[in-house]
Simulated assay, not measured.
Amino acid sequence: MDILTDKSRVERLEIVDTGRRRRFSDAEKIRIVEESLSAPRMGSATARRHGIA
C-alpha cells in the first residue's frame, strides 16, 4: 500500500502549541534521571510519563 492508494491518510494536520515551557527544580531533574536509569524502565517511558519530549 502506498500513499496514492491509502484512503485513511491525513488530509490536514493541525498543530496546537501551548507556548508553555515546564521548569524542573534540580531535585526533580535528579529524580527523573535516576528513574530513567533504573531497570527495567526505559528512558523514553520515563520521559513520556513526565511529559518530556
Score class of each variant (00 low, 15 high):
38 S>N: 09
11 E>L: 15
41 R>C: 01
43 G>A: 09
19 G>N: 11
25 S>I: 13
40 P>E: 06
44 S>D: 13
22 R>L: 08
32 I>C: 05
46 T>W: 02
43 G>R: 07
1 M>T: 02
34 E>C: 11
19 G>E: 10
17 D>V: 12
45 A>G: 08
34 E>L: 10
36 S>Q: 03
7 K>Q: 04
2 D>P: 06
10 V>K: 08
49 R>L: 05
25 S>P: 04
9 R>F: 08
25 S>V: 14
38 S>R: 08
48 R>V: 01
51 G>P: 02
23 R>V: 14
52 I>V: 11
14 E>R: 05
28 E>W: 08
50 H>W: 15
33 V>H: 00
30 I>A: 07
18 T>Y: 10
39 A>D: 12
46 T>R: 03
45 A>C: 08
48 R>C: 03
48 R>D: 00
2 D>A: 13
12 R>S: 13
8 S>V: 15
15 I>R: 05
49 R>W: 02
6 D>E: 06
38 S>C: 08
20 R>E: 14
9 R>S: 07
52 I>E: 03
3 I>V: 13
38 S>H: 04
35 E>H: 08
31 R>D: 06
21 R>S: 09
45 A>K: 12
41 R>P: 02
25 S>A: 13
13 L>R: 07
53 A>S: 12
43 G>P: 04
53 A>H: 12
24 F>A: 00
49 R>F: 06
37 L>T: 03
17 D>N: 10
6 D>L: 02
39 A>T: 10
37 L>D: 02
49 R>T: 05
14 E>H: 02
47 A>E: 03
51 G>D: 11
45 A>D: 11
40 P>A: 05
26 D>C: 07
47 A>L: 09
44 S>C: 14
20 R>K: 14
44 S>L: 10
46 T>A: 04
46 T>N: 01
17 D>L: 10
16 V>S: 06
42 M>Y: 01
4 L>S: 14
13 L>Y: 14
2 D>G: 15
31 R>C: 05
50 H>Q: 09
